[in-house]
Amino acid sequence: MSRIRTQVYLDHAATSPMLAKVQDVMRAVEGEAFGNASSAHWAGDRALAVLDSARRAVLGRFGGGDRVIFTSGATESNLIGLLGTALGEGFDRIVVSAIEHESVNAAARLAERLGISVERCGVDELGRLDLEELNWRLSGGPAAVGVVHASNEVGTVQPVAQIAELVHARGSRLHLDLAQSFGKVAMTEARAADTWGISGHKIGGPKGIGALIIGSDVRLESPIGGGSQEDGLRHGTHNVAGAAGLACAAVENDPVVIGPELQARADHLRSAIAYDVPDIRWTGDPENRAPHLVSAIVPGVPGEMLVASLDVLGIAASVGSACAARKDPSGKAGALRAMGASKADAVCSVRFSVGLDTASSEISSAAPLITETIHRLREVVSAQV
């Protein structure tokens, strides 16, 4: 088996290359609006104008919310959106799903150290939040609720309208992690939440920048100390060029256009693999899912072994919950385990994710190597048993 002639990147759920237009915008801002946006002179005014324009662009793409603060990424946005809501609203409880991204889990652990109780709500076999359990947990009193809109592991998109109805009926608040869905999935239902965290580098923007979109009547308190920037919620000198780059990427990523294009690429990859590996088991909700993400259990092939072997061939992919499962001796970590998968199956998970720069020819070249590698590794693993 020979290495693929051109490297194929199938890990856009981890990060996407920066769009050329974003790079141009950031270079221009660095040269023309270099000032500190907090400075009370012309250079500061120029930088502040860029920030204000970037906020409007993000709100415009999202189609809702009242204001935007810029952060260092979705991780910080989720921290402020979830824990900041609990502190600001005076809630002594946080409820998160069992398949949250580590950034939300980290915020929950910090909340526990601050004396806020944390409860985790289960999901079904497709990764959908158990609404009956959520309603029961919310009966214990108002809470800040954190939910990943589209799972970073299996791609399932949550029924936000139903979740928000339950949350608000109990006097609670809902924060959504939009890292995998913003710019790819229509935000119509997502707007029913109260706060939303987004990431720049997942949509072709720069790394090190994100945003927290905040609803009109949400009270937030910063869980970190510092200065007065970003309404006192996020401190430090503004990353003006980063904010402009994020805004540019947001404008360029229209989910109405991009969603179907990504779905077509993902379907191409899925069908090409399934043709030669008919026993592969796709994970997540087959109907309501992030269009760019393809996740599966490959029976008999450890995910880390498959990903490492594909890397040698020039194909970039990632494991799903296998990495987390191996780090956790109890085998309880990861979305697949929460969805009811066995530890053995979870270890055999793999995730592919496409982007707008993923060409059909690349998928056609990579798919045979992926399936050949699966068959070869099955022979290796079988011989070791």
Score class of each variant (00 low, 15 high):
Ile4Ala: 09
Arg5Phe: 04
Thr6Arg: 15
Tyr9Ser: 02
Leu10Gly: 06
Ala13Trp: 02
Ala14Pro: 03
Ser16Arg: 15
Pro17Lys: 11
Pro17Leu: 12
Val22Asn: 13
Asp24Pro: 01
Arg27Gly: 09
Gly31Arg: 10
Gly31Ala: 14
Glu32Asn: 14
Glu32Val: 11
Phe34Asn: 06
Trp42Val: 15
Arg46Ile: 12
Ala47Val: 04
Leu48Cys: 03
Val50Cys: 03
Val58Ile: 15
Phe62Asn: 00
Gly63His: 11
Asp66Met: 07
Asp66Cys: 11
Phe70Gly: 05
Glu76Trp: 05
Glu76Tyr: 06
Asn78Leu: 02
Leu79Pro: 00
Thr85Asp: 05
Val95Met: 10
Val95Gln: 03
Ser97Val: 04
Ser97Cys: 04
Ala98Asp: 13
Ile99Met: 11
Ala107Pro: 02
Leu110Trp: 11
Leu110Tyr: 01
Leu114Phe: 07
Leu114Lys: 01
Ile116Gln: 01
Ser117His: 11
Val118Trp: 03
Asp124Tyr: 07
Leu129Cys: 04
Leu129Glu: 02
Asp130Asn: 15
Asp130Ala: 08
Leu134Pro: 08
Gly146Gln: 01
Val148Asn: 08
Ser151Gly: 15
Thr156Leu: 02
Gln158Met: 09
Gln158Arg: 12
Ala161Ser: 14
Ile163Val: 15
Glu165Ser: 13
Glu165His: 12
Gly171Glu: 02
Asp177Phe: 07
Ala179Lys: 09
Gly183Lys: 07
Met187Ser: 15
Glu189Gly: 15
Ala190Trp: 05
Ala193Asp: 10
Trp196Val: 03
Trp196Thr: 03
Ile198Ala: 08
Ile213Ala: 06
Leu220Pro: 02
Glu221His: 01
Glu221Asn: 00
Ser222Val: 07
Ser222Tyr: 06
Ile224Asn: 08
Gly225Thr: 10
Thr237His: 11
His238Gln: 06
Gly242Asn: 05
Gly245Tyr: 03
Gly245Asn: 07
Gly245Ala: 05
Ala247Thr: 06
Asp254Met: 01
Pro255Asn: 15
Val256Trp: 14
Val257Phe: 05
Pro260Met: 10
Glu261Met: 13
Leu262Asp: 08
Ala264Val: 12
Ala266Ser: 13
Asp267Thr: 10
His268Asp: 11
Leu269Ala: 10
Leu269Arg: 10
Trp282Thr: 03
Thr283Asp: 01
Gly284Arg: 00
Asp285Pro: 10
Pro286Asp: 14
Pro291Gln: 09
His292Ala: 12
Ser295His: 04
Pro299Ser: 15
Gly300His: 12
Val301Thr: 03
Glu304Arg: 04
Leu306Glu: 06
Asp311Phe: 06
Asp311Tyr: 12
Gly314Phe: 14
Gly320Ile: 09
Cys323Met: 13
Ala325Pro: 00
Gly331Ser: 03
Leu336Glu: 11
Lys343Ala: 01
Ala344Gly: 06
Val347Asp: 12
Ser349Asn: 15
Val350Gln: 07
Leu356Ser: 13
Asp357Tyr: 06
Ser361Phe: 10
Ala366Cys: 09
Ala367Val: 12
Leu369Glu: 14
Arg378His: 04
Glu379Ala: 15
Gln384Cys: 08
